[in-house]
């Protein structure tokens, strides 16, 4: 791997590593939410005869606790610095560098996700395992596939947030877009409840037409082996398609943004 990428990722990792207190506080909050969601879903499953939306008890436990862990790794709620830099005009400095800011931000964000993986992800997963007992995957292949799926989820989320930041080139106040994103990415990604609970047509539309399930539901389904290994490979492939499409969209939109900047002088 070229030198620059490693350095950028390391910088992203270190930047978050300085906020250890914040990481601990965030993990604590994830654990509290984990307990609540876990109990709620288990009760619903018990009343429904042992399973909800095709997930059995231990699968639900894993769904909840891995979900709480992934929340900070995927990190859909914090916007990139880029938006603020576009607003203040500092973005010009980013564009003058010999490396495309898309890659700069991407590698930095991967570094951040790496730090979240070894802190924010581990804590809820360990607590969930001790308090409830997690689902143990049957196939060995599920473990590496989960890591790949998680990495792809981080990339999908990054590309979405990058696109949102880029809208700041055209809009003075991007809070509206951000707010819309926070609502939809929470509910439609499978964070609050498994998407399988929704009516079949709605969850199908979400999976096929939107990138949201690729943020949370996809890696979680891989981890609990919902629909077996084949299904896992399918959703991971779907994530890959979204990564490619969204990154292409980022490049295209950025290209137009830069042209606008050059033509109109910011």
């Amino acid at each position: 791997m070229p030198h620059v990428q490693v350095a950028l990722a390391a910088a992203g990792f270190r930047r978050y590593a300085t906020y250890r207190q914040a990481a601990l506080a965030g993990a604590f909050t994830n654990v509290v939410f984990g307990f609540m969601r876990c109990y709620i879903l288990l009760v619903v499953a018990a009343q429904a005869g042992g399973s909800v939306g095709g997930y059995t008890g231990p699968q639900l436990v894993s769904y909840v606790w891995l979900g709480q862990g992934l929340l900070a790794v995927v990190n859909s709620w914090t916007q990139l610095d880029l938006a603020e830099r576009v607003r203040t005009g500092d973005v010009v400095a980013d564009l003058l560098r010999p490396i495309n800011p898309l890659w700069t931000y991407l590698w930095t964000d991967l570094g951040r996700a790496g730090f979240a993986m070894v802190t924010r992800f581990i804590v809820p997963v360990v607590v969930g395992a001790i308090a409830f007992g997690l689902y143990v995957p049957r196939h060995l292949l599920t473990y590496p596939l989960f890591l790949v799926s998680t990495a792809l989820a981080v990339l999908v989320c990054f590309a979405c947030r990058y696109l949102i930041s880029l809208t700041a080139f055209w809009m003075l106040d991007i809070r509206g877009v951000t707010m819309f994103w926070v609502f939809v990415s929470g509910a439609a990604s499978g964070l609050y409840f498994p998407l399988a609970i929704l009516p079949g047509w709605l969850s199908a539309v979400l999976w096929v037409a939107t990138p949201f399930p690729a943020l949370m539901q996809a890696p979680l389904d891989v981890a609990v082996e919902r629909g077996g290994l084949a299904h896992g490979l399918l959703v991971t492939g779907g994530q890959l398609v979204w990564v490619v499409l969204l990154l292409l969209a980022c490049r295209w939109v950025q290209h137009n943004a830069v042209r606008k900047l050059v033509v109109q002088g910011g």
């Binding site: 506080a25 604590f28 909050t29």
Partner: peptide
């Protein structure tokens, strides 16, 4: 602790979620 603000969320937003359901569920 300036940076630990998120601990509070566990009880405020967490409390909102907790109280939305019957306590018998926990």
């Amino acid at each position: 602790w300036i940076e630990s603000g998120e601990v509070a969320n566990a009880f405020t937003y967490g409390g909102r979620d907790f109280t939305s359901y019957p306590s018998t569920m926990y």
